[in-house]
Design a protein around this nucleic acid. Structure first.
Length: 266
DNA sequence: ATGGCAACTCCAAGTTGA
């Protein structure tokens, strides 16, 4: 059985309704995680997904943040063990959503969708909040690993893991998204038992997932790779391909992020 | 040196993002 997992920071699920609709039609993701939905749960546009045959779990708040996990109903069973926010991290912002999916008998994937804080500026209060968020995430996953062999940690990490993931590493040296401490937190996550699927499957490829709206950054390909799909090594053995759907960033009124994906055969 | 764009919000100028 083949299936795909995607992650996309949509920068408002309501403002991006047409894009999401088009994306579901053309890409037909089997499982997906969304970030920056920017809407409270009572106003979440469930029907946008339901009418295309998708189920959707969501956890949001007013104006900012917000995460969701969707699944193709004809192929994937309903989620179990849904967790909203990391139980080890007191947070008034909606940035974390986990759920388990039984793909086939005996093969379950634990999906952990995250929207890591941006961090604003190195050394700021928001920066320390970001680092704390990542520490608690690491603690959470360490516990999850005791009971799950197939974990997929995906979302907007707001970290460019290495210089190859940045269009100009001199400009971004020790800037937010690229600082040593942020990269160390990323590597600490990997050290638990995870692999950065895109980088392992495309070792020398420079490809980005985010481009600033300003300065015609997308046209000039001035981007960073800050959205990621990490999997446990056990799950990684089933992955064939990992990529980024940059076409979608070309469209009018697009999100500033492009969706990232993996293809899996079990 | 700064802003540039886009989405949000008690509807409109301030906040946030990356």
């Amino acid at each position: 059985m083949n299936f795909s997992i995607h992650t996309w920071n949509v920068n408002s699920v309501r403002a991006r309704a047409d894009h999401i609709s088009h994306w579901l039609d053309t890409i037909q993701p089997d499982l997906f995680a969304l970030q920056e939905t920017k809407v409270t749960d009572d106003l979440f546009p469930t029907s946008l997904f339901e009418k295309k045959g998708y189920g959707i779990e969501f956890y949001g708040q007013k104006s900012y943040n917000g995460v969701a996990i969707g699944y193709k109903k004809s192929k994937i069973f309903s989620p179990t063990s849904v967790v909203k926010n990391n139980p080890l991290f007191v947070d008034d912002q909606a940035r974390f959503l986990a759920s388990s999916f039984e793909i086939s008998t005996g093969f379950t994937i634990r999906l952990v969708c995250i929207y890591v804080p941006n961090g604003s500026e190195v050394g700021s209060d928001k920066y320390h909040y970001k680092l704390d968020f990542l520490d608690s995430l690491t603690d959470f996953l360490q516990l999850e690993l005791k009971t799950h062999e197939n974990i997929c940690l995906l979302g907007d990490f707001n970290i460019a893991p290495a210089d190859i993931d940045v269009y100009d590493c001199k400009i971004w040296h020790e800037k937010i998204l690229c600082s040593k401490a942020e990269r160390e937190k990323f590597n600490k996550l990997l050290a638990l038992d995870f692999l950065d699927t895109f980088r392992v499957l495309n070792p020398t490829k420079q490809m980005f997932s985010w481009w600033d709206y300003r300065q015609a950054a997308f046209r000039r390909n001035l981007g960073l790779r800050i959205d990621h799909i990490l999997t446990t090594k056990n799950l990684f053995y089933s992955i064939n391909k990992s990529g980024i759907t940059t076409e979608i960033r070309k469209r009018e009124k697009s999100s500033d992020h492009a969706p990232c994906w993996v293809e899996i055969t079990i």
